[in-house]
Amino acid sequence: SDEEKKVRDQAKRLGVNTEQLLKWARRQGDEDLVRIVERLLRS
C-alpha cells in the first residue's frame, strides 16, 4: 500500500530498520504510524 511504502521510505531516511522505526513511532506517540509499522512487521 501507499502507506507502507511511505513507512519504508521514512525508515530508510532515518537509517533504521522496521523494529527501530516502531520504537521511534511509539516515542513520537504517532498511533497511525505505529499501526502501519506493526502491520508491516506482521506481513
Rank of each mutant, 00 (worst) to 15 (best):
L22K: 01
E4C: 14
G29E: 03
V37M: 05
R26G: 02
L33H: 00
D30Y: 14
V37E: 00
K23L: 15
L40T: 01
S1M: 10
Q10D: 03
A11L: 14
E4M: 13
R8D: 05
K12Q: 07
D2V: 09
D32Q: 08
V16R: 04
K5G: 06
R42H: 06
T18F: 15
E31K: 12
V16S: 04
Q20F: 06
V34Y: 04
N17S: 13
K23M: 13
V7M: 04
V16F: 15
E3I: 14
G29W: 08
V37Y: 01
D32H: 10
E4H: 09
L14W: 09
T18E: 07
R8N: 05
E31R: 10
S1F: 11
D2T: 09
A11Q: 08
V34A: 05
E19I: 11
R26K: 14
K23C: 11
W24R: 02
L33T: 01
R8Q: 08
E4T: 08
V7Q: 04
V7D: 03
R8F: 13
L14E: 03
Q28K: 06
L40W: 10
R39F: 10
D30P: 05
N17T: 14
D30I: 14
T18H: 13
Q10S: 05
D9P: 03
A25V: 08
R39G: 06
R13K: 12
R39M: 08
V37R: 00
V7L: 08
I36K: 05
A25W: 05
R39I: 08
R35F: 04
R26H: 08
D32A: 12
E19S: 07
N17V: 11
D9S: 04
E3L: 15
N17H: 07
L33G: 00
E4Y: 14
V37S: 00
E38N: 03
R39T: 06
E3V: 13
E19G: 05
D2N: 08
L33K: 00
E3C: 13
D32W: 14
V37F: 05
R13L: 12
S1K: 10
K5E: 08
E19M: 13
L33V: 02
Q28L: 09
R26Q: 14
R35W: 06
L41Q: 02
G29L: 12
L21R: 00
T18R: 10
V16I: 12
S43F: 12
L22A: 01
E38D: 02
D9C: 04
R42Q: 13
R42M: 12
V7I: 11
R26T: 07
Q28Y: 12
I36Y: 08
L40V: 05
R27T: 14
Q10H: 09
L40M: 11
W24S: 01
V34L: 04
V7G: 07
L40K: 00
W24D: 02
A25Q: 02
D32L: 12
R42A: 12
K6S: 07
E31L: 14
E4Q: 07
T18N: 06
E3Y: 12
R39E: 08
K6I: 12
K12M: 09
L41K: 01
Q20A: 11
N17I: 13
D32P: 01
D9T: 05
A25T: 02
D9M: 06
R26V: 11
S1G: 07
K6T: 07
I36A: 08
Q28W: 14
S43H: 09
G15R: 11
R26W: 07
V7E: 04
K5I: 06
V34T: 02
E31A: 11
D9F: 07
W24H: 02
D30W: 14
S1N: 10
L41T: 02
E31I: 12
L21C: 08
R26Y: 13
E3R: 13
G29H: 04
S43L: 12
D9N: 07
E38F: 04
A11C: 15
A11P: 04
N17W: 14
E4S: 07
L33R: 00
S1I: 08
G15I: 07
G29C: 15
L41H: 01
N17D: 08
K23R: 12
A25S: 01
V34H: 01
K12E: 12
N17L: 12
R42Y: 13
E38V: 06
R27S: 15
K23T: 08
K23P: 01
I36D: 01
W24G: 01
D9E: 11
K12P: 02
G15F: 10
G29N: 09
Q20L: 09
S43D: 11
E4R: 08
R27F: 11
D30C: 14
E3G: 10
A11D: 03
E19V: 10
R8G: 06
R35A: 10
E38I: 10
S43R: 13
W24L: 03
Q10V: 14
W24N: 01
D9V: 03
R13C: 15
Q28A: 07
V16N: 06
L33I: 04
L21H: 00
L21F: 04
K6N: 05
Q10K: 09
D9K: 06
R27P: 01
E19K: 12
W24M: 03
G29I: 14
R13H: 06
E31M: 14
D32K: 10
G15Q: 07
L14T: 03
R35T: 05
E3W: 14
E3D: 12
T18G: 07
V16C: 15
I36M: 12
K12L: 12
I36W: 09
Q20V: 04
E31G: 06
D2A: 09
Q20N: 06
L21A: 01
V34D: 01
Q28I: 13
E3F: 12
A25M: 06
D30T: 05
L14Q: 03
K12N: 07
V37Q: 00
S43W: 10
S1T: 11
V7F: 08
R42W: 10
K6M: 14
Q20Y: 05
A11I: 14
K5L: 07
K5M: 08
R42I: 07
R39H: 08
V37H: 00
E31Q: 11
R39S: 07
R13F: 09
I36R: 04
E4L: 13
